[in-house]
Design a protein around this nucleic acid. Sequence first.
RNA 1: GGCCUGGUAGCUCAGCGGAUAGAGCGUCCGACUCAUAAUCGGAGAGACCUCGGUUCGAAUCCGAGCCAGGCUACCA
Length: 513
Amino acid sequence: MPATASITTPIYYVNDRPHIGHVYTTTLCDAWARAMRLRGFDTFFLTGTDEHGVKVEKSAAANGVSPQAWADRNAAEFEAVLRLFQQTNDDFIRTTQPRHERQVQLLVERLRAAGALAKGSFEGWYDEGEETYLTETKAKECDYRSPVSGRPLVRAREENWYFRLSAFAPRLERLFADHPDFVRPAARRNEVLGRLREGLQDVPITRTNFSWGIPMPGDPGHVIYVWIDALLNYVTALGLGDGSQPERNRFWPADYHVVGKEILWFHAVIWPAMLMALELPLPKCVYAHSFWISEGQKMSKSLGNFIDLPALQGYVDRYGLDALRWFLVTRGPLDATDTDFRAAAFHDTYMAELVNTVGNCSSRVSAMIGKTFDGRMPEDPQGGGEWPARCAAAVRAWEGHIDRFELVQATGVAMGLLREVDGFINRTEPFKLAKDPARRGEVGSILAQCAETVRIAGVLLEPFLPVKTVDLAAAFGGVGGDWAQRSRWGALTPGRGLVKVALYPRVETAPAG
RNA sequence: GGCCUGGUAGCUCAGCGGAUAGAGCGUCCGACUCAUAAUCGGAGAGACCUCGGUUCGAAUCCGAGCCAGGCUACCA
């Protein structure tokens, strides 16, 4: 029975327009999920939409439709985006689906039964126009005025159900002490630890000022606050709330919850505490990436410089889907600092890595075999020379990087193999030797070694470049089978067809602006 | 305000106690011509933010400062 692997994106808020952030997070998860499937793991990749809350209720009203109709429309757009970018999610959960709502109520019941909930009163700064509370920090920042209308905030009080987060402080401390990799990267973990030291407050988990949400069981009039509702998606999708999908139980706990840095606290502190209360296992790692900025400027609604769907589509039209995915994964803000999305950098990366390295290397090797060996994989009496060991080491290193969610390093391993092949060709000059019929055997060895290395590098690139690596694999012998077979030296046996490929076309100039 | 990161070649970054500080890209020179005007080699290029400390030895550890960014409880 194969080992399992599971990964999640946050569920996306249907009130937002899809943009580079959503595509980035999803693409990271997709690349990892594809890598694990490639390795033969029993893999589950979950994403979805978060559809409750005041904002949805208000937007729907403003657009003259019901909240459900509004959510349906926008959720459909998020799903369309997944298909557009060829994401391979295994499920798409929506918080308005009956399967989710039913389980959230059961799980909240369980929290209450476990003594993790208490009724209390909440007092805070209330924006009457927006019908929403602002945090103390935010209120202060806005000079105690509504950031929207500018009218003064009022002190308001509400009866709510609270989650007794403070009661979990000792267990959370132990979690962070025992599992230093629970939150990554390390800089983010430090931030969480810093805040943990300041002490934990109980968190309100119900609201009474809107109705678009899941009713609190046994206390109508109270609606379960969107965050609690949303976090639970990770387990409701697997049927853990009501045992409705036993065949999916094996995918919990998740290996990675990949999230943006702004929602780390919920995932790193509130969520594990909820799971402790529910007596469910904790995810192995919450990975918080940073943000993209656009041409040196922070993306914001006021600047109108969001890298939105049309912008992304423009890159795909011009450079192809592989190019976009490659740039996002290899140049993205996977560590604790934001990174810049620049059109010029996108162009340079595409040219240097996909065209001049992946494309050209596979092209020159396949072309020489086409010419010299009639498009058949030649014999190699040298048994691969140093290459089998080098490739085996690369495969092992790649697996380690994937395990640790070091996606950039994983791509680097494959690129390193291709660069070595390019150097090897220049040193051994098979194209020169080919002119001397007496040295045909030698040429065969060289080219066979190159071809097999390129094929293996191509396999390692599949999760990141899912479109063109299909052509690469087909052109380099069409080696099938499982991971062990495909990653093994020698699978491209002599005599197999090997046709010339031209994977990534040159794109002459960087687009203006 | 509090807390957390980072400041290393023109650019993006790796190195985080030990030899002349590295990679990729860009630039310049050379080689080659199988390949997508690609590739390979070489070169140039750095007070490793500043000041002080610890040490036989500091880019690396400690302290202070400067600069940039982040987090501070409902936007990927």
